[in-house]
């Protein structure tokens, strides 16, 4: 079970950085330029790890990114990779969907403790924006999750995944899928909802004081965490994957849509994003809930 988890973490790390490299290349092509090599984000995080010194603001600031990374890895390990195979399931038989939904918030909240302790006003403003946006983001995603749990009469991700053998949830519950996907965009931090660390507004928000190895952890955490969220969406709505190839294909398809939407829209303010999230995706998901 230990080896299984280590392989899962390694896969998530590699895929996370590969997708992030692809993201930078795809948006470069949209911009009309070549863009960096695929492994550029990998190089960035290694270089940041190798920096000679990094600024520390006390033990709580030191623990912040570590809790964030722990939250990301624990979320990842509670989501099974494959549909119906005993490999790469990590610890998902000990957890369920409600636990994963709450674990997704644990990492950022732990990180918020670290950022709060360094005393930088921009850091705390980014955190407050994140938590305010969370109010809007959680609603449609929870409604979709509740709809699936009631439809499948179980909160276990494995069960929800296997029940989609005849038609994946994206087609049987389309409205739930649309609501969840819009809030998934927000979770992935793509505009129009990337208000948390907007450099033009809040001087790079929570990551203002991250230097050297702390910034490296933040980058690798966001790689693993975005892969975990992609995995969750694929398992819940696209019927999970039999083999690794199908897994990569489905996660990359979702990721591509998120990237292209992100490239086309400007950024909302925090208030506008909550107003939008509480009206449009929540309305769609609520209507979808009626048909569950």
């Amino acid at each position: 079970m230990l080896l299984d988890s280590l392989v899962m973490i390694a896969l998530a790390y590699i895929f996370g950085f590969l997708y992030y490299g692809l993201y930078r290349n795809i948006s470069a092509r949209v911009h009309g330029r070549f863009g960096p090599s695929l492994a550029q984000s990998f190089f960035d995080s290694i270089k940041l790890f190798l920096k000679e010194n990094s600024t520390n603001f006390g033990w709580m600031f030191y623990a912040g990114p570590i809790i964030m990374m722990t939250g990301a890895i624990t979320t990842l390990l509670f989501i099974p990779y494959l549909n119906g195979s005993e490999h790469l399931i990590g610890l998902s038989q000990y957890g369920n969907l409600i636990l994963v939904l709450y674990l997704m918030v644990l990492g950022p909240l732990g990180n918020a403790m670290g950022i709060g302790s360094n005393g930088n006003p921009f850091g705390i403003m980014g955190i407050t924006r994140g938590l305010t946006r969370l109010i809007g983001l959680e609603l449609p995603f929870y409604i979709a999750a509740i709809g699936l749990m009631i439809a499948n009469q179980s909160a276990d991700i494995g069960v929800i995944m296997t029940n989609q053998s005849e038609g994946c949830n994206a087609f049987t519950h389309p409205l739930l899928f649309i609501g969840a996907f819009i809030s998934f965009l927000g979770f992935m931090g793509k505009s129009p909802f990337d208000v948390v660390g907007a450099p033009q507004e809040v001087y790079s928000g929570p990551a203002t004081e991250f230097s050297g190895k702390f910034f490296a952890i933040a980058l690798s955490q966001s790689a693993i965490f975005s892969f975990a969220k992609l995995l969750l969406m694929v398992n819940l709505f696209l019927g999970g994957a039999e083999g690794l190839v199908e897994l990569v294909a489905k996660t990359f398809a979702l990721f591509l849509v998120a990237v292209l939407v992100g490239n086309v829209y400007a950024r909302f303010t925090t208030i506008q994003s909550v107003e939008f999230l509480v009206r449009v995706p929540t309305g769609i998901a609520l209507v979808g809930l009626l048909f569950v």
Binding site: V30, H31, G32, S191, A198, Q200, A266
Partner: peptide, 16 residues
């Protein structure tokens, strides 16, 4: 103007 609200694409095209 577009960079101030996160629309990176317009900046890339217009500077070109």
């Amino acid at each position: 103007q577009s960079g101030s609200i996160g629309l990176g694409v317009v900046g890339q095209w217009s500077v070109y």
